[in-house]
Write a protein that binds this DNA or RNA. Structure first.
Lengths: 338, 338
DNA sequence: TTGTAAGCGTTATCAG
DNA sequence: CTGATAACGCTTACAA
């Protein structure tokens, strides 16, 4: 292991000069800088970030806790986060809580002892009103900045979330404008905000949400069965599938009931992807790269105390509607695509 | 920041005792251990891994370089790797080379100065015969163990790869057994091994690969156009799509040419996923969890010098065929599924 | 502008 | 079994 001392010796200078050249801080003459650089190059020296972190009490490392990898969206976001962080000379430790509060605590502990400067937490939904609040508080006291993404679970934390209200509103409104009234909204538990947008679109259009048209699938229930039955009973003309997994389930049901899209049923899904694109499904798209950047910038501003506000900040990211051929216009007998 | 000294003071012992309790090494009486644990708990102490790493010259951290996030497969693997590493008390720094050699070098540098104990490299394909060989050699000299996954790019490294030969062989063979002869194989550049399996299946069945039935899409070419033309000219009865992106392209072409699956064309895709499942596409599946574990174990065995062999080791992971309803049996007029 | 030396929080060695 | 102390490689006052 070649150290700054080795470089210093070879360049006939002191370790401080080596340090100074490698962080571009403090007074140093061009001459010695060159000598150091040359020696360093010859020896293949790279500063030891471990030592630097220990000394500076700053690891320049951020931790990311992903709750659910099955959601491709989060993996994509992870990429944008890492690339943004690298630009800012930060590293990213990635961990997976896999939808378990206990695993999440595990991740928090690991990141805490790794002395990360900050944590991006995609929180697991608390079960039975248990949560990791205490652990989070402990980390905050340890001076680790935590930002939560996509779900506002902990009051005291900055949040970057999606404007799901608006996304659902836009989608619902679009369907209504196309003549749909009997629209089912299918979601996992705890998606109140998306529902609010859905409901609001109805009232804004002077309509009522159809009876039993709000379909919330309990965690471990048989989604296919529930959706099937509702489709048969309610005969909706349109569905809004509020996440990736539910989209798959809805599609399966459509296939098994032999419902043609969009002829017999129109669909809008949350979370755009190459597959949705391939299948011609309309969707509510989130600006992934922008989100990744927003998360990093917000977090680093806190870490470097650029952000003055002492109150938690919430950033809401806008979504947009991507129209493909999964929606039938009921005002016209023939849909314009098909 | 609460340190081992703080704990030591409170427990009326020395820092060595604190150290000993927290790593379960060295002689220590149950009595003092308990005192230490109590004090640590009261103070909310966690050992500082940075300091430990510096002292031990072991960071217990592994770096992962992902070449291409668009391939969902890699994100899934990342999850299994992280979870396996966590069990083994290692951390994972994730970086993305985004298919660029320069970015890859960037990642290598970052991991090197982070003093990771090992690197899992999903290598970028060398362009114009350039590669990061020199940098890799430098890291090896720095005593960082590198394992390459999914592509054997660098001779000196251990590899964990997929038995794509066999996967393609099985797929092709299955199609042939179902009466297909005019089978097109579509792949990105540099997928010789999959092709070998494809070809071998033909010869083993006493058949010849159809003229122009091997379709290799150059990196920045218009895949849709190329595939379309070949489909029109060759009128294949079956296709093997050799990666995720190509599967999407093939599906698009089928749709635009209005080819019904499996009636007019049968399809087998590489890389299984929920979406393939939903669409009823048959596929060649890779055992992700097993692969993740194999990667970690191989790497850690090297790091801890458990592995005796001085020569590079190659681990080949077996694939399996998942049959869905995208394949027509030409021996029977009506496919049994339709 | 440069060098000296103390200290960041651990662990390993050695003496008790 | 326990404690004192010297490292690990770096940064930063402070002195020169």
């Amino acid at each position: 292991m070649v150290t700054s001392l080795d470089v210093a010796k070879m360049a006939n200078v002191s370790v401080s000069s080596v340090s100074r050249t490698f962080q571009g801080k403090g007074y140093i003459s061009n001459d010695t800088k060159l000598k150091v650089l040359e020696a360093a190059h010859k020896l293949g020296y790279t500063p030891n970030l471990l030592a630097r972190s220990l000394r500076n009490n700053r690891s320049k490392t951020i931790g990311l806790i992903i709750s659910n990898i099955d959601n491709t969206f989060y993996s994509d976001i992870a990429k944008y986060i890492e690339m943004e962080l690298r630009k800012l000379d930060y590293r990213l430790i990635v961990t997976y809580s896999d939808r378990s509060l206990e695993q999440e605590r595990n991740c928090l502990e690991l990141l805490s002892s790794s002395r990360v400067d900050g944590i991006i937490l995609i929180p697991v939904k608390p079960q039975k009103s248990k949560s990791n609040l205490k652990y989070i508080d402990a980390l905050i006291r340890q001076n680790i900045i935590i930002l939560q993404a996509f779900h506002r679970q902990y009051e005291a934390l900055d949040s970057v979330i999606i404007d799901d209200y608006n996304g659902s509103y836009l989608a619902t409104n679009y369907l209504i404008n196309n003549g749909h009234v009997n629209i089912i909204s299918v979601q996992g538990e705890g998606n109140v905000i998306k529902l609010d947008g859905y409901t609001q679109a109805f009232t804004d259009n002077g309509l009522q949400v159809g009876k039993n048209n709000i379909l919330t699938i309990p965690s471990h229930a048989d989604a296919i069965d529930i959706i099937s039955r509702t489709f048969v009973e309610n005969r909706p003309t349109a569905v809004i599938a509020n996440d990736n997994r539910i989209t798959l389930d809805v599609l399966k049901v459509c296939k098994s009931l032999n419902l043609k899209i969009p002829d017999q049923i129109s669909i809008i899904a949350h979370d755009d992807s190459a597959w949705l694109n391939q299948m011609g499904l309309s969707s509510i798209q989130k600006p992934k790269e922008t989100i990744g950047r927003a998360i990093c910038n917000n977090l680093l501003n806190r870490i470097n105390a650029v952000t003055a506000s002492t109150d938690p900040i919430t950033l809401k990211m806008e979504t947009s509607l991507i129209m493909r051929r999964s929606i039938k216009n009921l005002h016209f007998p023939k849909p314009d695509i098909s």
